[in-house]
Amino acid sequence: MATDVHRPVTPKTADPAPGSPARPTPTLAPVHPAPTPASVPHTRAPAAAPASAPHAVHVEGLTRSFDGRPVIDNLRLDVRPGEFVALLGRSGCGKSTLLRILAGLDRDIEGTVLVPRRKAVAFQAPRLMPWKRVWRNVLLGLPGKPERALAERALKEVGLDHRSGAWPKTLSGGEAQRASLARALVREPDLLLLDEPFGALDALTRIKAQRLVDELWQRRGCAVLLVTHDVEEAVLLADRVLVMDEGVIAYETRIDLERPRDITDPRFAELRARLLERLGVDTVAEAA
């Protein structure tokens, strides 16, 4: 069910006009912890917005506990506008929880979390409404009465305009995931949150989908946070790879390889091995 406290984060004030992809610093809206009474009208002025370097995400002192056990413990994270960040971590390390917090879906938090007003999520499962045709799914939740052409443009961008009138249950896994991406992109997000979006795809479709995300990101220039457990994928796509462990960002590294990246590049292999080691996977044989 809808939480009432959700309203402060995504107010309907976001202008529906599809602006140019290149846009200035996004205005950050704080994600308020759940205990804050929703009646307090602190929506308009993001008082705690950092005055210094521009951020697409600013997280400080974030703690999220499940039954008294902290899954995220005093975490700090900054993402620059337009930066592609991959978040790696072992299963259950809290990376998906962090993404859900940034998406405003989990509010039992302590600490400061600032995210852009315009953000979009693509989940591991496409989560399309099966009772709405693809194009209606894409437009779902947009303010006003958007036209079908808007959806078709977004679908064309992911190469799915020919299935615009289809029912979601008739799409293949890859098509459904692309529709989900189109639904995220049509919102012109300043921050795109991807929660293992390729996890359920077969190997070939995954490669195509990764290329597509790479292309879309270069064209749109929005900040991306990709949660994944696939080290190769992280090194392939991200500017910066974070490894999460014990509820904090335990390790981070820049990926300065030029794009498009080549997985057979020895530097690629070296980065991959180093990250795998960080994740507790012994890769001596592979790195050699």
């Binding site: 809808a2 998406a103 999520v121 409404m129 939740g141």
Partner: peptide
């Protein structure tokens, strides 16, 4: 998903 799309 609906919540994340900003549905009221």
């Amino acid at each position: 998903a609906g919540e994340s799309l900003g549905l009221s």
